[in-house]
Simulated assay, not measured.
Amino acid sequence: MADQAKIPVVVNGAAGKMGREVVKAVSQAEDMELVGAVDRNPNVVGEDVGIIAGCGELEVPLLNDLQSVLVLATQQEIQGVMVDFTHPNSVYENVRSAIAYGVRPVIGTTGLTDDQLKDLTEFAEKASTGALVVPNFSIGMVLLQQAALQAAQYFENVEIIELHHNQKADAPSGTAIKTAQMLAELGKTYNPPQVEEKEHLAGARGSVSEENINIHSVRLPGLLAHQEVLFGAPGQLYTLRHDTSDRASFMPGVLLAVRKVTELRTLIYGLEKIL
């Protein structure tokens, strides 16, 4: 990289479980430079983010002010990138702030509403700034979704089960919602009613997406990130499942997104759009 400037990267939510993995991955990438780290946890503010992430001293202190760190990213030779793994309650404002500063956001935080995504897309286009919103950075999950699209051509009945650790704040997961949306784009009507259902406990059948696909959410300690897509037909059940056992599995997708977002001039939703 001697003859080419490295991509300046800011990690927001750097002390979290995913944030620490991103810090390690970015610091080890030859074409990237970690220039800032943000986290609201008062117990770690001021500490070296490399020590927090377990990858050794990086001389990058953890700060709790996103605005000041975004300014650091604008003072680099080339346009910076913000990787955000924070909380659904703050992600919308984080993305708007990054775009306003001319820093390209790569968003792994789920929970953005359709209206927020529409607003951020318009904001990014006006600013000619690339942005990536990725519900799941796993290449394996992208392959599962592609297999689901193939299966949906032959099955009318499908349900989704997503299972995550019990510290995940939103449900259903962004990945499950995205999978249902992708199936809907085929223009099919799913799960034609066979009987008049009655729930004796509210939510027993899960949530129902606009695509008429039931999505069931499980939250338990011991889980990380898992998803099943079940297709049923008379006499057969076709199950697609993806399991994550280590957050390191998401890092190739994160690094790919950091590289690809520098080429964009608008907001793109989904990792499959850049593969």
Rank of each mutant, 00 (worst) to 15 (best):
I7R: 06
I7W: 01
G13M: 11
G16P: 09
K17V: 13
G19S: 09
R20L: 01
E21A: 09
S27L: 06
A29Y: 03
E30C: 07
L34H: 02
V38K: 05
P42R: 06
N43P: 02
V44H: 00
V45Q: 14
G50N: 02
I51P: 02
A53L: 07
C55G: 02
G56C: 04
E59L: 09
L62S: 02
D65A: 07
Q67D: 11
S68F: 00
V69S: 06
A73S: 07
A73W: 05
Q75K: 14
I78M: 04
G80I: 04
V81F: 09
V81D: 01
P88W: 02
V91I: 15
V95P: 01
A98I: 00
A98H: 01
A98K: 03
Y101Q: 11
V106C: 03
E122H: 13
F123S: 02
A124N: 04
T129A: 05
L132I: 06
V133P: 03
M141W: 10
L144W: 04
Q145L: 14
Q150H: 13
F155K: 08
F155E: 02
I161K: 13
H164K: 14
H165R: 15
N166C: 10
Q167I: 12
S173K: 14
G174C: 13
I177G: 09
M182K: 14
L183C: 14
L183R: 13
L183M: 13
G187D: 09
E197K: 11
H200Q: 04
R205Y: 11
G206N: 09
S207N: 07
V208G: 02
S209V: 05
V218N: 08
R219D: 03
G222Y: 12
L223P: 08
Q227M: 15
P234S: 12
Y238M: 15
H242L: 12
R247E: 08
F250W: 11
M251W: 00
P252F: 03
G253L: 08
L255D: 06
A257I: 06
R259F: 06
V261Q: 02
T262H: 00
L264A: 00
T266E: 08
L267P: 07
I268H: 00
L271Q: 01
E272S: 10
K273L: 01
I274F: 02
L275A: 00
